[in-house]
């Protein structure tokens, strides 16, 4: 089975965000595999172990993403592909990324593609479905369970807290929701093995793409931090009175109930 995973390198969830020169300040920040993509990688490894085949993890970004790709290899993926856009693109959007990945995958034999349902930095959740559409294969988003039987697939999908059980078939793209699995930590032997696993690096040229072919359709014109919230009032006195006061404040002052 040919299994592909779409992976993004993101800020660690515990990082504070600072802005300098109109951009998010990345200096000294910890970077991780986007947490939802981690579920995708774990699921891909489990599917491969049950069905045979190969897991290839793809990332679009700069050479810094090599580290996260190596981590994916250490978890158990077989191959990694970095499509390095650093020299070619100033700025891309989801159209750009999906176009590049779609171009890379279009002549591959694909059985299953997994991605995170959203990246915790940009938060748009577009690339997975866009890639599936470009390849003309079905997709199911925010899945919490995946069962594969031959080419038949049964998926459980999280829909705002409810779940849907969906039947479909390969080839298929799915995006991972929390609860799909418990991603493994790379083992020490895994880390050693990962160093020898193939990590292919490509540029737009290698995909016969021009900058113009992937030019973004949208543009960020400003990035800013939300106004700092001032600490509010901690109520005092008898607990029963605090509760009464709180209800009054919410009713009369904040007017939210």
């Amino acid at each position: 089975m040919n299994i592909y995973v779409l992976m993004k390198r993101t800020f660690d969830t515990e990082e504070k965000i600072a802005i300098s020169g109109g951009k998010i300040n990345e200096e000294g920040a910890e970077f991780i595999i986007n947490p939802y993509d981690e579920y995708a990688i774990e699921e891909a490894i489990q599917v491969r172990d049950a069905n045979g085949g190969e897991v290839t993890v793809i990332s679009v970004g700069n050479e810094e993403a090599e580290k996260q790709l190596r981590t994916a290899l250490a978890m158990g993926a077989d191959k990694a592909v970095l499509i390095n856009t650093e020299d070619d693109l100033e700025e891309g959007d989801q159209y750009t990324t999906a176009k590049i990945i779609g171009e890379y995958l279009k002549d591959k034999e694909v059985d299953l593609i997994l991605a995170g349902n959203v990246a915790i930095d940009g938060g748009s959740g577009q690339v997975g479905p866009r890639v599936a559409d470009a390849l003309d294969i079905p997709y199911v988003t925010t899945i919490t369970n995946l069962e594969i039987n031959g080419t038949n697939v049964t998926v459980t999908r999280d829909v705002e807290g409810d779940s849907e059980v969906i039947e479909t078939s390969l080839p298929l793209l799915v995006t991972a929701q929390q609860g799909l699995n418990e991603p493994r930590y790379p083992s020490l032997p895994g880390i050693m093995k990962a160093k020898k696993k193939p990590l292919e690096e490509l540029e737009l040229d290698d995909l016969d793409l021009d900058e113009d072919d992937v030019e973004a359709k949208t543009k960020t014109i400003e990035i800013y931090l939300p106004p700092q919230k001032e600490a509010g009032r901690v109520l005092e006195g008898e607990l029963a009175n605090q509760v009464k006061e709180l209800v009054q404040l919410l009713h009369s002052e904040a007017k939210v109930v």
């Binding site: 504070k16 965000i17 915790i120 359709k217 543009k219 014109i221 800013y224 931090l225 939300p226």
Partner: peptide
């Protein structure tokens, strides 16, 4: 002269303003 959209990034730790440049 632009339609400017505001959206949270980093799950609301920051915001960005975006415009459509094509289509």
């Amino acid at each position: 002269g632009n339609l400017v959209f505001t959206r949270p990034i980093y799950s609301g730790k920051a915001f960005e303003k975006k415009i459509v440049t094509d289509g």
